[in-house]
Simulated assay, not measured.
Amino acid sequence: MALIDLHCHLDLYPDPEGVVAEAVERGVYILSVTTTPSAFKGTRKLASPSSRIRTSLGLHPEIASAREHELALFESLLPQTDYVGEVGLDGSRPRRISLDRQASILMEILILCARAGGRTITLHSRGAEKLVLDVLETEPLAGLPILHWFTGTKRQIDRAVERGCWFSVGPAMLSSERGRKAVATMPMERVLPETDGPFGEANGITLMPWQAMDIVPELSRLWRMNMTEVYRQIANNFVFLLGAAPRYDHGSSIRWS
């Protein structure tokens, strides 16, 4: 059984080296997201290129306005990775005031991705689901979007599917009725596992990367499939995602095998 975590903040665990060592031993496929461009190089050094861990270049919307000056660094680092994230918009009460600025920054990031040939992009959308889709539609060549912890309406999910979006879903998301309702609406062939660790929790305990597949029992119920079929569906989704992701040659061996 493949272990897959498509959205995890490895550098923000209390003991990132220990988490990486265990993840490598278990053979977990991890997309390690970052919150600022300045964190990218240090986070990438946590794992060997020969491991199943890949590092994405991020500028988290919660701090994007304060770190807008790092966009130049983002642009310079972009050729070094196939993956962008965590980026997006946050419309929660404390950050709603900066949404216009966040949207401008996200647009600039998507333009940079399009100019670079496209990237696989993992996106935050809390409290701003519609606006994230609006911004994505302004730059269709930006790449392949993965909506992380997306709890939009059925109409918004249908719209995201039409745009070519995927969805990463974790145990923490499935612990709420709103999350389960959203996942039940998503096409099963577009669903991928995540933990959002160390922020994602289950029963008050921080989720580890190898626990992303703990979504399987709940998906089995939502999809009315046995767990073996759900594992197979998720594994097939991951393989298909890799085949669908933007392809270009930037002279480094950073793609998952």
Rank of each mutant, 00 (worst) to 15 (best):
L192D: 05
V33M: 08
H7F: 09
L78P: 01
E218H: 10
V28L: 01
E139M: 14
Q156T: 00
A21I: 07
L3H: 06
R190P: 03
H124C: 09
E86N: 09
V19C: 10
I254D: 15
A2Y: 13
D11L: 03
R95H: 15
E162P: 03
Q233V: 02
L106S: 03
Q102V: 12
S76I: 11
G143Q: 02
E75Q: 02
A245I: 10
T36Y: 10
C8M: 06
K45R: 11
L110Q: 06
R180Y: 15
M186L: 08
N237R: 03
P49L: 10
V33Q: 00
S257H: 14
A160Y: 10
A142Y: 10
V87I: 09
I30K: 05
C165M: 09
L207T: 04
G143H: 08
P94I: 11
E129L: 03
I215V: 15
P49K: 03
E201Q: 15
D196Y: 02
H69Y: 12
E177P: 10
R54H: 08
A182W: 06
T206F: 00
V135N: 00
G251Q: 07
R126H: 14
Y231R: 13
P187K: 07
L133M: 08
L219T: 13
N203C: 12
H9Y: 01
P209C: 05
S252V: 14
S125T: 13
E25R: 15
F240Q: 01
R96Y: 15
L222Q: 10
T153M: 08
L219V: 12
V183G: 02
T228H: 14
L57Q: 04
G179E: 03
G243Q: 10
H250V: 11
L174K: 05
Y83I: 03
P171L: 08
V33R: 05
P61F: 00
H124T: 07
P217C: 11
L133I: 10
G200C: 04
L207S: 05
D5M: 06
A235M: 05
G251E: 05
P16N: 09
G18R: 06
C8V: 00
W166R: 05
E68Q: 09
V216A: 04
L241H: 04
E108K: 13
G204E: 11
T153R: 06
L106W: 10
L73E: 07
P37S: 03
W166G: 03
L46T: 01
G243V: 06
S175I: 00
K130N: 15
P16A: 01
I146S: 05
E229Y: 08
E62M: 12
E177C: 14
L31V: 02
I53S: 00
P217V: 14
